[in-house]
Design a protein around this nucleic acid. Structure first.
Length: 620
DNA sequence: TTTAGGG
DNA sequence: CCCTAAA
């Protein structure tokens, strides 16, 4: 999820769920569409899926720069044009030359004509109407431009074909092409415009880097991580690796005025491509082994895997996967690029969402495995968000593993060796611990602090939640407001047997508690599995046993706390206070439970009881 | 596989 | 929270 400022914030379960549903919908649609091979249809769905996802790339900060940039670029246009003319004469770039003559307006990018005459209309327009020099210099890319698009056009099953066609171009395209292909002179010009002074440096790399840095206002630009289109610089975001290709490769710009349409189309295409990625990787994984990185990981994991994680952890894994599609607070684009490159194109953030199932799990396992201490390769699922707002001191056995400390350490470590942080925010305490002992190894980057947004909301229950039980049944998981634990932690507790036992704690949020209470009121205490089904279907990490335990604790708490209500209010610091409302309800349920057999339609009773004791029945 | 209870 | 016996 994206905050207004563009920061990434953890999504709630429900949001995730919704998103997943949504995506699944989209996916199915997309698959159908993809099969038809009609890119136009892709466009239709683009808005909903890719469009939405696109928001995830924080270009807020970049926009300002772009403004400046554009001005500069405009100035540059003239220079570039000259240059282009020259180039077109001396270089074998036919299409550009051709285009040059056709394109009268230098303000707009030259279109890459690439002999697409047979194409009725540009269905796969290019983002890569990327600045003139983008294509004016890449003779090679021109060819590549035509291929994929043709693929889409011609082959029915081409969706995947397109994708694979695109793949090889990845590393090349978003990287060096834009600036790299500029002549020194162009670079100088650009430098001058950018910095307002001349430079005598002949080092192309340096110039490039310098300019890029300036343009993106980033110190981390090592290569060009942006592209320029329609006189605007688009900073490449997380999804760049995936997009970049689509954008760059499938460039077939038509009228300059269609910038918007183009953009949409291309993003649509991107959607398709990405989707294809998923499909493809599912169906023909072998093909991507080399390019994708996923395959490799998969293999490694397969090879190294010794022990299968317990079901619970598997669940948790998936939960986390789905939950933090954008774990990192978007590092610099460069970092992003590199990281996504390291792990294969499919891992761009945007596609993260879509591919999360496969990719992420692979990733996690992979990283995990790497991290594991020499020898004991306990599979440690990477979990995100280490700490919660309040340090929990009540976890006696974990006291010395206080999340805070760990988080801190993690951060430090990250700074120290922040690098391949692609699976970033995911971190487990175990990892941290290991990191301590084996510094210099991989560390997830960017502690999750910045991500922390959802707080242990002590919100009152939703208005309709308990008053109308039936409704709730119809929409069990909807009742969950945007609350989120925002905290997972896995701690290893040394066991006598020499092994490490994972102790995993996830604080119960009031909402969860409420759901539990509702569930009990509905199904009766003891029907934990059912309750889980009804009310916790979205929380894979709460097992029926957990529910039972929690209920037990609730009972205890409710009966312990109530008598000395005033005095007890001295809450143990750190412990999440249980709202009296809930406690009251628990008590009632408990009492009721003992009096009446569970079968007795408890819901009416509960409601009645709740209201009967109503002097503080604010709960409902 | 789910519940119940102990740790 | 984990583990395990019992159903």
């Amino acid at each position: 999820m994206v905050e207004g400022d563009g920061r990434l914030v953890p999504a709630t379960d429900d949001e995730v769920m919704e998103m997943e549903d949504f995506l699944e919908h989209e996916n199915s649609e997309m698959r159908v569409v993809a099969d038809t091979g009609q890119s136009l249809e892709c466009i239709s769905i683009e808005r909903s899926s890719s469009g939405k996802l696109r928001l995830e790339c924080p270009k807020g900060t970049a926009d300002a720069d772009f403004g400046k940039l554009n001005a500069k670029l405009q100035m540059l246009q003239k220079v570039k044009q000259e240059e282009r003319l020259r180039l077109s004469c001396e270089s074998p770039i036919r299409s550009c030359a051709k285009k040059e003559s056709q394109c009268s307006d230098d303000k707009f990018p030259v279109m890459v004509e690439n002999n697409q005459s047979d194409t009725p209309h540009q269905e796969i327009p290019s983002l890569a109407s990327s600045l003139n020099y983008t294509h004016s210099n890449q003779s090679g890319s021109v060819d590549q431009c035509s291929r994929p698009s043709e693929g889409v056009m011609e082959s029915g099953s081409s969706a995947s074909a397109v994708y694979s066609a695109l793949k090889p171009d990845f590393s090349m395209f978003d990287g060096e092409i834009c600036l790299d292909k500029l002549s020194i002179r162009e670079l100088h010009e650009l430098f001058k415009v950018t910095f307002g002074r001349e430079t005598t440096v002949k080092d192309k790399q340096w110039l490039k880097r310098r300019i890029a840095m300036s343009l993106t206002n980033s110190r981390d630009v090592s290569a060009t991580t942006f592209i320029i289109k329609d006189n605007k610089i688009i900073r490449k975001c997380e999804d760049s690796s995936g997009n970049g290709d689509a954008e760059n490769v499938i460039s077939m710009d038509n009228a300059a005025g269609e910038a918007d349409i183009n953009f949409k189309d291309s993003s649509a295409l991107e959607g398709c491509v990405t989707e294809d990625n998923q499909v493809v990787s599912e169906t023909k994984p072998g093909k991507h082994d080399m390019e994708n990185g996923l395959g490799v990981e998969d293999h490694q994991r397969a090879a190294k895997r010794v022990r299968k994680p317990t079901k619970r952890y598997i669940e948790e894994l998936s939960e986390n996967e789905s939950r933090d599609p954008n774990p990192t607070p978007t590092p610099t684009p460069t970092a992003m690029l590199s990281s996504s490159r390291n792990f294969g194109p499919g891992l761009s953030t945007t596609s993260y969402v879509r591919l999360s199932r496969d990719t992420c799990s692979e990733m996690r396992t992979f990283i995990t495995r790497v991290d594991s201490l020499g020898g004991s390769d306990v599979q440690v699922p990477c979990v995100s968000r280490v700490r919660r707002s309040h340090p929990r001191k009540d976890i006696t056995s974990l006291t010395k593993f206080l999340p805070i400390d760990l988080a801190k350490d993690a951060k430090l470590d990250n700074k120290a060796l922040g690098e391949n942080g692609s699976c970033a925010a995911s971190e487990s305490l175990e990892k941290v611990l290991k990191a301590r002992s084996t510094p210099g190894k991989f560390q997830p980057m960017r502690a999750t602090e910045t991500l922390l947004s959802s707080e242990p909301e002590k919100e009152q229950q939703l208005p309709g939640v308990s008053t109308n039980e039936p409704q709730q049944e119809s929409r069990p998981k909807r009742a969950d407001p945007p609350s989120h634990p925002s905290e997972d932690s896995i701690v290893t507790v040394p066991t006598a047997k020499g092994g490490m036992r994972r102790k995993h704690h996830r604080a119960w949020t009031p909402v969860e508690v409420m759901k539990l209470v509702d569930g009990v009121s509905r199904c009766g205490a003891g029907k934990w599995s059912e309750i889980k089904r009804l009310s916790f279907s979205s929380h894979s990490y709460r097992t029926s046993v957990d529910l039972k335990d929690k209920w037990r604790n609730l009972l205890k708490a409710s009966f312990a706390q109530t008598p000395a209500d005033e005095g007890m209010n001295v809450r143990k610091h750190g412990t999440t206070p249980i709202p009296e409302t809930i406690l009251v309800r628990v008590r009632e349920l408990a009492g009721m439970n003992s009096q009446a057999p569970p079968n007795f339609s408890s819901r009416n009773l509960v409601a009645g009881a709740g209201n009967a004791h109503g002097h503080r029945s604010g709960y409902l």
